[in-house]
């Protein structure tokens, strides 16, 4: 059985994008180790509400590590530190020690303005996908699924790239506020599959152009993104995006 722990929680409060923002502090008492980080925040919010205060706002939804909604920067690491990739909702309090100070901040990047407290606006990611992160395939009667043979290795690699949950941890961790890991994962998934090849050049150009337009930074290959990615996306994807993009531009 996990032990209960007590710790000091510092959490970011910010009332809208223009507000300056500040940390609030609270002593959290006797939190069971098998409580997830978000459940701990639920406990915090129960306490706040019972005191008549406004709850701490943060994004969360599936709590299974797949929806990509949760977005907390915990003790200096997006989603908090775990041995293998995990989202905030998969972080358990047993990872912390009694007497710790836990600091919770929002994703901080010009591309992700704060809406309230630790809830940020990530519609920029949607806009990048809308610019070209798809295979144009009309609903209806495409050819039989097995008519396209895809080597297992390629399918598996495409699947790894496709695992990206669009949480934005890569941008949050990047000292350049670059969205390259996100963009390259989608470009890679579709570049690896024969279905995606016809539009590959157009896609790489359109998505990079949109990414730049939205104010994300230039990648300097620090690998911080890959280190914090909850789905362990690799910067090999970024190399592939560079390749696709440069080839596309040289063919223009």
């Amino acid at each position: 059985m996990d032990k209960n722990i007590s710790f000091k929680l510092r959490y970011w409060r910010q009332n809208g994008p223009k507000d300056k923002g500040h940390f609030d502090e609270r002593e959290m008492k006797d939190i069971p180790g098998d409580t997830s980080f978000l459940e701990m925040l639920d406990i915090l919010n129960e306490e706040l509400v019972s005191e008549g205060k406004e709850p701490f706002v943060f994004d969360h939804d599936c709590r299974e590590g797949i929806c990509g909604m949760c977005s907390l920067y915990i003790n200096g690491t997006p989603h908090g530190k775990t041995e293998r990739g995990a989202t905030t909702c998969q972080l358990y309090m047993r990872k912390f020690k009694d007497g710790d100070t836990i600091t919770v901040e929002p994703w901080r990047s010009a591309g992700f303005p704060v809406i309230k407290d630790c809830m940020v606006d990530r519609t920029a990611f949607d806009k990048i996908i809308q610019a070209g992160g798809y295979v144009t395939a009309r609903t209806g009667q495409p050819q039989d699924a097995n008519a396209i043979l895809i080597p297992k290795q390629d399918a598996d690699e495409a699947m790894d790239c496709a695992s990206c949950i669009g949480c934005g941890a890569c941008v949050a961790a990047c000292k350049n506020g670059s969205a390259m890991l996100f963009v390259s994962s989608k470009v890679s998934q579709l570049a690896l599959l024969p279905q995606g090849r016809p539009e590959a050049a157009r896609r790489a150009k359109a998505m990079v152009a949109k990414m730049d337009e939205l104010g994300f930074g230039n990648c300097t290959n620090t690998r911080a993104c890959e280190a914090v990615c909850p789905k362990c996306e690799s910067i090999a994807n970024i190399a592939r995006l560079n390749r696709e993009f440069i080839a596309a531009k040289l063919n223009d």
Binding site: G21, F23, E105, S109, A110, P113, K175, N176, G217
Partner: peptide, 12 residues
């Protein structure tokens, strides 16, 4: 890149 990080910096 400095601009892309936004005006706020992480405390930790």
């Amino acid at each position: 890149n400095y601009r892309a990080r936004g005006k706020d910096r992480y405390a930790v």
